[in-house]
Design a protein around this nucleic acid. Structure first.
Lengths: 139, 139
DNA sequence: TTTAAATCCTAGTATTCTACTAGGAATTGA
DNA sequence: TCAATTCCTAGTAGAATACTAGGATTTAAA
């Protein structure tokens, strides 16, 4: 029940982009140095965030990355779901459906998985990158 | 961000013990057949639950397992934590402390991990085995 | 006393997943 | 032209998962 480094690194990279948003193009090299994350690995992660529409890039010399939206319009949930997949604790196709499923795995215990999933998503959907960077402790 | 089969199978086995609690000793064989889980694997899982004090056993012929406590005194959280370890989304020793940590991983993003952890634990601590079996949909 | 049914215990293992590394191709400002 | 940068894909060591296997011990019942 752990997040992988993808989600953790990805969120840190996004925070880094917010914090350094006075620069226009922020190079992967600088992010990787500040965050202590391998450049090649971070590249794969940020590439997913780009495809998901949270980051934009400029190629070539003096190129780099920047946020594709305002930090208040990107939630932690957006980032984690892009990198980790859905945040459900089990893979039950019907976890969000009313109807019963045949899988022994679901049904009796399904309500538990759904409540966990809902609570996680509720938390991460209600924290924006802006909230994080401004450091509201009363989030 | 998935639970392993240990947590899922373990919870199902515990529910099975509640549902079949009219029997005195419930054999692993019968649980494994009802739940469709390999007996040898289930044995390893139930052994952890026994060591954690949620299940008791009787050896020998006519032996088997039963709950060590009332189903209303065992929460889903007890079971999942016994089998999955803490339910924190990251391994940050200081995630529950007030003070700052040096790890780049924590600190700015720490509040996210703590809120996820708290919300998961809040959900699973407030569902007992009895609640599950009685099927309250308004848990 | 024997036997069968059951828990107890530990070692091994195939497969999958994670967390990278590596390196070349394409783009672009200077 | 060239250096800096993003883009793209393949490979891979190590760890974790999800088991399988099988023997030792205990006990009720024949």
């Amino acid at each position: 029940m752990k997040l992988s480094t993808r989600g953790r690194y990805g969120l840190r990279a996004m925070v880094d982009l917010v914090v350094n948003s006075k620069e226009t193009n922020i190079s992967l090299k600088s992010i990787s140095q500040r965050q202590g994350i391998s450049m090649n690995y971070l590249e794969q992660i940020i590439s997913v965030l780009k495809k998901s529409g949270y980051v934009k890039s400029v190629r070539g010399a003096k190129g780099g990355y920047s946020l594709a939206k305002s930090p208040k319009d990107i939630s932690v949930g957006d980032i984690l779901r892009a990198l980790e997949g859905d945040l459900n604790p089990v893979d039950c196709a019907l976890v969000n459906e009313e109807k019963q499923c045949d899988e022994a795995d679901c049904c009796i215990t399904k309500i538990v998985w759904k409540k966990i999933s809902d609570s996680i998503n509720d938390v991460v959907n209600n924290i924006s990158l802006q909230d994080l960077v401004e450091g509201h402790n009363d989030l």
